[in-house]
Nucleic acid binder design. Structure first.
Lengths: 202, 202
DNA sequence: CACCACCCTATCCATTTGGATAAGGATAAT
DNA sequence: ATTATCCTTATCCAAATGGATAGGGTGGTG
């Protein structure tokens, strides 16, 4: 009987996942609502066969929380579960050694096959994340203002319009467009919009 | 205690949904694996408070299976559940009288609130379908050439560059840009790129 | 304090884009 | 044979965008 630990601060999600997996009859499931709690369970209960960590739970960070958990997990695969599934985050988790990345939006049968796959030592990533080679290396930091402008661009607004919305001069918007395009390595505003959307910075 | 009927041919999904709802302690849940079976249950068991029909189960059609079910359901709200959530299908189901449309990818808490909402006679549609007024009605048709140009736009290319790639004059590209932008109801090329990607036409 | 990151503004110029209008040619369907 | 659709090109003009350069202002940190 495989032993699984689910750590998620959202009770309903965690309970549902746990109940679902228990109902399969093949798993023993423990639960934790925060990272420290999960760490405690792992240290007490020796070996889990699979550990699932919510990406946005109290105490959780990437990659530190992940590496800490892997360190005490005695080689058990550790996967990240998340509601706000972003390709770049998934990629980051995988490169930090995570065994997989499970969006909460997965349907049950996919979830089950993913878990079985993980238990056998496989790496699981949703296919929608696989085709993103370039994104993680250039994880850029856009300032709040640049994000405001980028949002406007994505809505198809002209600089003049964005300027009115943000209550600044048009030249200022043009500056932000230039800098954020450089940061994103975009060739122009349209390209910047697409890149921003792909990395869902918007 | 609200009585709910779930009809879905995929055992795992149906069982999980049923177990989840039963665990809430507020619902009695019956199950069916095909449309005829669901019809039989409805006719025998008199009144359900809510009926959920899988969009892709044996015997199921839209809108016929839906209207048939509504006809014998004594006014109970009938909602469609589906794994392959397509806005146009959702729109069609709603206009045929469905009380809602539930993608299987919904997370549990959203599902619960949706069910409660449906039980009170409300109409439920995921927000991702609501804010797409243009997508369902005007499922636009772009010509092959327009798609070529749109792809170029999405890659951040300038008209001149696209023209070179497609081996036509720049003016031609400009024309395509204008017409495809009009078709997509986009304000400019950037907006067109975003819309095209959202509707994954690219 | 000096430094740094961020935000705002200005001017000037080249290029790109958006839009109107007109029109020839190819192909497929009625 | 006529129509319809699509692709193509052309000219002309207004507007938006991209880029360079040069400032001033704020707030926080070492």
């Amino acid at each position: 009987m495989a032993r699984i630990l689910i750590a998620d601060d959202h009770d309903l999600v965690r309970e549902t996942l746990a109940a679902f997996m228990r109902d399969m009859g093949q798993f023993t499931v423990d639960q934790a609502a925060a990272l420290p709690e999960a760490v405690k369970l792992i240290e007490e209960n020796a070996a889990y066969d699979l550990i699932l960590l919510d990406y946005t739970m109290p105490g959780m960070t990437l990659p530190d929380g992940l590496t800490q958990t892997m360190g005490i997990g005695k080689g058990a695969p550790v996967a990240i579960i998340s509601g706000t599934a972003s390709p770049s985050v998934a990629k980051g988790a995988l490169s930090a050694g995570a065994a997989g990345f499970l969006p909460k939006t997965m349907n049950p049968e996919t979830l089950l096959s993913a878990i079985k796959h993980l238990l056998q030592g496989g790496i699981y990533t949703p296919q929608t994340f696989l085709d993103t080679p370039s994104k993680t290396e250039a994880r850029v930091h856009l300032t709040p203002r640049e994000l405001d402008v980028l949002r406007g661009i994505c809505e198809g607004k002209a600089n003049k319009e964005i300027a009115r919305d943000l209550d600044v001069q048009e030249v200022t918007v043009k500056l932000h467009v230039k800098t954020l395009s450089r940061k994103l390595q975009a060739r122009n505003r349209t390209h910047a919009a697409m890149i921003g959307r792909d990395q869902n910075l918007i």
